[in-house]
Design a protein around this nucleic acid. Structure first.
Lengths: 338, 338
DNA sequence: TTGAAAGCGCTAACAA
DNA sequence: TTGTTAGCGCTTTCAA
């Protein structure tokens, strides 16, 4: 069932059908009514491919996410999708593995699709990726991270400040020996570690290497292994900052396995405030990223970019919030002192 | 940069470019080489919309998921996407809220997109949805559930049998007072409850209403509230079957809040074996659905359907696995007896 | 082995 | 207010 079929059925030309379907002016009201009911009857829906062909645009925004996107990214995606829908845009997910081949393929697909814009929720490794993307002239916004020098507007929080706040929370609880489960992958991993270091330095506490384990993935299982490593070093920590909630869950698991209790024996704070964190037992202390706002904002910015406004937008930095819950408690030394 | 530009640059006709790009025969090797390198240089990628326009197909499979898709569905999606990629297909997510309006919009979009096929990971409420979809002639497979009478092939497990196994595990541990956090939404909710009832009946145990709470969402928060309700009834349960892992997490939270320990005071078993379940402290006993296999199988079936084979395929029923972990333990009465 | 031409479904400029 | 026509980028006969 295409536009010609409808036109024939209605006894008019395709142009008129097009005008009615797209809500254009200059169609006699009664004709419009007749066509509209015909459309409803037949269930006619304009062919998207044909439409984007002639319009030279797809009303589709590509969303780049890591292959194994986590709950945080999944919530971000929903927020974006929801807001974009209000503007008449649809989305298309592009899953990228962290390897050059997959990144290259993603780039090719991004360009083949005639997307109106791209929102990146995933920091791609290859620097050339950003250059090629910029060169294609497609509007791009990065969300949850900033790519310096790319010229892409970004939406994110003050990662380092948030990590300082998380560590500061531990310090204010009287902890002095504070470890970290850090990550080398992605800018946020390095920024959050920098925040931990800064907070410790400001408090005159040590941020030595033996308090650090760098994970190779931001998963619970990686967190479990990393915490086991840290425990094996026997460095009498009383608190831990895990740079993501998933990592924190794994760390707590490693502690559970050796009979250490959280927060009695060790305080743990995570980062992101994913859905499940508040429902854990004990509930996870963490730093909240404003997921819904970040998503909405990313949608707003890409729409503005697509409509040609807002060249050279400055980064949008949204506020984070420290969420102390049950996995953090005063250190025992502190309790004795007070 | 389109096919004409490349043709001009190479000094040949668009037809030849098309042949080279699509790996067709009848192009002189040296010409092919020259064009191929030109394509690489310029970064030319054929326009997807134009291609699907003339080919009358999009090489895209729509995946219908609930608006707030959970970790289980997200893993399923990744598995499907991965397998489909091997066949040269891409995917497109269709988020549906559980309300008639949203379902109707989804249907319209599904038809506008000229999809090659649809995999449904979400059981839509409106019965007419399935009829309209079938009428459109698009290949459809339902995954994780079966729609009787729709004629769509389905991939799923024996939900009721799996629920019987979960409940049976609790019974074999000596539990006699076994509650359930059930759900009315979706067929699986009713099937899992039926399995619980069947297992109790087979063991001569009671499945009275006061042991049942029906949740309105399969989330941790809903599970917490439901468990609080159950606890409020004061019906001395010693074990609980939560029909999803998320629900189980919430139930454990409710118990934690009133100082009850799992599994010492109450055993809990979930369902699905989502990523996080193994990393919880204690780790969650559950029933595993073969997520990766279900995804692969769904991809295989849709591809077969698209290529015209396999009309009238029978449902694929994959094996589940009971995964006893740390949230289930022998009941105390049992311990005394033995 | 290559090129010319038609056409996929739609929209928009132009004519009527 | 409506219809005619050209053309978006691509593939595919058919002809050379």
């Amino acid at each position: 069932m295409n536009i010609k079929d409808i036109a024939r059925l209605a006894g008019v030309s395709p142009s008129t059908i097009s005008r009615v379907v797209n809500g254009k002016k200059y169609v006699k009201p009664e004709l419009r009514e007749r066509i509209l009911s015909l459309v409803k009857e037949t269930g006619y829906v304009p062919n998207t491919a044909a439409r984007s062909m002639v319009l030279m645009r797809t009303f589709t925004v590509g969303i780049v996410v890591p292959d194994a996107f986590n709950m945080f990214q999944r919530q971000l995606f929903s927020a974006i999708e929801h807001r974009l829908e209000g503007y008449g845009y649809r989305t298309r997910l592009f899953l990228v593995k962290s390897e050059p081949l997959s990144e290259g393929k993603c780039l090719a697909r991004l360009r083949a699709e005639m997307l109106d814009g791209v929102i990146m929720l995933h920091e791609v490794g290859d620097p050339a990726f950003y250059g090629s993307l910029a060169q294609s002239g497609m509007p791009v916004v990065t969300c949850t991270f900033e790519r310096e020098g790319s010229g892409f507007p970004s939406i994110h929080i003050d990662e380092e400040g948030a990590a300082r706040a998380a560590t500061g929370h531990l310090i204010s609880l009287g902890h002095k020996a504070i470890g970290i489960l850090a990550g080398a992958q992605f800018t946020f991993g390095r920024q959050r570690r920098a925040g931990w270091e800064a907070a410790l330095a400001a408090a005159g506490l040590g941020a030595d290497e033996e308090k650090v384990v760098v994970v190779d993935a931001y998963t619970a299982e990686a967190g479990r292994r990393a915490m086991a490593t840290l425990l094996g070093r026997g460095t009498g920590l009383t608190a831990l900052f895990a740079v993501t909630d998933e990592l924190a869950v794994g760390a707590i698991r490693a502690l559970y396995e050796v009979g250490k209790r959280v927060p009695q024996d060790l305080s743990v704070i995570g980062f992101d405030d994913i859905d499940i964190s508040a429902s854990l037992s004990p509930s996870l202390s963490t730093v909240r990223q404003p997921i819904a706002d970040m998503g909405s904002e990313a949608a707003e910015v890409i729409v503005r970019l697509i409509s040609g406004e807002g060249a050279g937008l400055s980064p949008v930095i949204l506020p984070y919030a420290l969420v102390p819950r049950e996995t953090t408690a005063p250190s025992k030394t502190q309790a004795l002192r007070s």
